[in-house]
């Protein structure tokens, strides 16, 4: 792939106590591409995602986003970057239970300084796009698992991030619901031009990616470009 990568991890090492989680892990993510990080449980794929997203800081090695060294940034700079440039989808939506689904989607925009009215209007459009307008006024606990994940996808994309990090986004869903979430998620990400880093152990979910990197024993193996 000829273009410069948007996000790069170089030679990352990270241990939790005496347990090594990453052992010289390196990977590149290009703008607008969907990369699946695959590998068995405990292989380090989620840890790698958290390092790429600036949530975890590696013991050594470097994470670069759009030319900026994430590992050298202060915590508050990293938080600001995460809020403005990154989106997140986790296995269990992690929506705020006290807010309605609509307010959950509007929240990142409000945190970014948007007016309540503008944020809600944009959130409404995203819920419609993810085909979950009917749960707008419900709290996440009143929505089904599949609906909750679509709300989470809407929340991740509402700020039009450059990169969305998704950690087992369909892990808690059945095949049919998981598939619908992936279809809508991938289509919306492609439309907005967001890159997606998708951690999954499910091959059928990985099949929505452009290519895969396999993490094993804290290292990245088998990275193949197909575009």
């Amino acid at each position: 792939m000829p273009t410069e990568p948007l996000l790069t991890a170089e030679d990352l090492h990270l241990s939790f106590g005496s347990t090594p989680a990453l052992d010289s892990a390196s990977v590149e993510v290009h703008a607008g591409e969907i990369l699946a990080l695959m590998g068995p449980s405990g292989s380090g794929k989620s840890t790698l995602l958290h390092c790429l997203a600036g949530i975890l800081t590696p013991d050594s090695g470097r994470v670069t986003y759009a030319g900026r060294d994430l590992t050298a940034l202060h915590d508050n700079e990293r938080s600001a970057l995460r809020r403005s440039e990154f989106g997140f989808v986790f296995q269990f939506g992690q929506l705020v239970p006290e807010l309605t689904c609509l307010e959950n989607v509007a929240l990142p925009l409000r945190l970014g300084g948007a007016s309540r009215r503008a944020a809600l209007r944009s959130a409404e459009a995203w819920l419609e796009r993810l085909e979950v307008s009917d749960v707008a006024d419900k709290r996440p606990g009143q929505a089904s698992g599949g609906q909750g994940q679509r709300v989470a996808v809407a929340r991740a994309l509402v700020t039009r991030p450059k990169v969305v990090f998704a950690d087992e986004p369909t892990g808690a869903l059945d095949s049919l619901n998981g598939e619908r979430v992936m279809e809508l998620f991938v289509a919306a990400a492609r439309d907005t031009g967001a890159a997606v880093v998708l951690v999954t152990h499910e091959p059928r979910v990985a099949a929505y990616s452009d290519h895969e990197a396999v993490v094993r024993d804290g290292r990245v193996r088998a990275r193949e470009y197909v575009r």
Partner: peptide
Amino acid sequence: RSAHLRLMRDLT
């Protein structure tokens, strides 16, 4: 794995 995933992407 790569070959399988390539085919799975086509099918998807």
